[in-house]
Design a protein around this nucleic acid. Structure first.
Lengths: 255, 255
DNA sequence: CGCGATCTTGATTCATCTCAAAATGCGTGG
DNA sequence: CCACGCATTTTGAGATGAATCAAGATCGCG
């Protein structure tokens, strides 16, 4: 929950990846050499099991703004995120769209596919994205053989639920400034180790916090003025974590 | 999602219950005779399996306002709701409390117990409550023997996630009036067949919609004036569904 | 270089909060 | 059964945060 946890994009993991990959050669895709292997779904498997996976798993690259899948589409696979950031969003019956949560490297999205349901939300790439497609049948079979996998799946469901509940409690109550500060804190979980984070377009901030584009813009401008954040470019910012945390503490009382 | 689905508290289910219960006698608790047997966790089991359950399952009665469990408590059991309504809530780091979702007859709450985690939220009785306590070890053992149970559990996790996402999209965006109308729609899912629903205290409505007590009171007063609802007593109301739906349709455009 | 999309900024309006007080409901003890 | 007191609800008036409406400014791109 706190920024110091930068394991999501740790340099160590990348190093291990390229190291292992040498044996398989640079082209062949190997699950044993996956940069997110430890956090990902098959983390419980041994090398022998992992070696048999790649035949069934296909990699995919997605451009920012493109959908990995859409709500109500029949769901035949779940996806593990190798690299990049996804937002899960639904459109409300009122017409607006609402971002439900984010997912990053090591996360598994589209769990509902495993139950034969249609997708519950749109999954849209925030940044350039690399994912692995895990067909439902594969997971079904492996789950039957390996009970530990089922337990891992249940943990992931619980984690998703937890995350949704956090968005409900921390990102959709309180005044707009508080919610914006909480969003920055959340984004810092997916940031580079040096503190640079991906900054959503103003309209997307709006869909995350339920504010208008204008308000999102004003909030960002204010926090930049206060030195809580500074732009690298329009889509990336550097956070001053102590100030962010101080601003959050201040925002508790008044709001 | 729509009021006509009143299966949650259908008279049929109750009739089946009392019918089956005759054999076991009125005192002994029998899972085969449970009023929510078909919707509940062990719905997939046959009579023989069900007969062995009661030894491990204890029934519990809870008064309105009392907690079934509290967030961060170690969780050793999940609960099936036999009768009554529960609200799941968390307190935000800002100090407020926020209702995450509701659970009613046939629902399973406290799923996180099965993963050895602490409880993720407070579970508080809205109405007089009857629940069955399902110890973690029981579910673990049965799950190992009966894979269909694991699948059912995953479905429940997904259902909870779905519900949380619905609260995010429909109950925490849009103006207060829209959210209030959506809440009534949601409450109608747990209503009596005749259209009477349980109406939360104004402060609880506030925690569900993220509004103040005063605003909650004004919203209720306005909808009563418009004939969308009328009080039976302070805690129960009768909905005029056609008007409710009409009001929702109108609220889409302007907001 | 120019054009559409996105972002910023300002002025005004409106919804909801805040503060305050009265009304009602509800349990308790006389 | 009534009188009391506390909690909840209702209602009002004023303050305020965010939406809306309306221009500009900047960015990305052909």
């Amino acid at each position: 929950m706190v920024p110091s946890d930068s394991s999501r994009c740790s340099h160590d993991a990348l190093w291990i990846a390229s190291n292992d990959a040498r044996r398989a050669g640079p082209e062949a895709h190997s699950c044993a050499g996956c940069p997110v292997r430890r956090q990902a779904l098959f983390g419980v498997f041994d090398e022998a099991m992992l070696a048999r996976l790649p035949a069934h798993i296909s990699e995919q690259t997605i451009e920012p703004g493109q959908a990995l899948y859409r709500a109500n589409e029949p769901a035949a696979a779940a996806w593990t995120i190798r690299e990049g950031l996804i937002r899960l969003e639904r459109s409300s019956e009122r017409g607006g769209r609402r971002v439900l949560r984010l997912a990053g490297p090591g996360d598994l999205v589209g769990l509902e596919a495993l139950l034969g349901q249609t997708h519950a939300a749109d999954a849209i790439a925030c940044t350039p994205l690399q994912v692995c497609r895990l067909p439902r049948v594969l997971i079904d079979e492996l789950g039957a053989a390996e009970p530990a996998l089922l337990r891992d799946l249940m943990k992931r469901w619980q984690a998703a639920l937890d995350e949704a509940e956090e968005w409900l409690t921390e990102l959709s109550t309180g005044d707009a400034r508080w919610r914006m500060l909480r969003l920055l804190l959340k984004l810092s979980e997916y940031g580079e180790p040096d503190g640079r984070i991906w900054l959503p377009a103003r309209g997307d901030i709006g869909a995350m916090l339920d504010v208008t584009v204008e308000t999102a813009s004003r909030l960002v401008a204010a926090l930049k003025r206060e030195g809580v954040m500074q732009f690298a470019d329009l889509r990336h910012a550097r956070l001053d974590m102590p100030r962010l945390l101080a601003a959050l503490r201040e925002a508790v009382g008044p709001g």
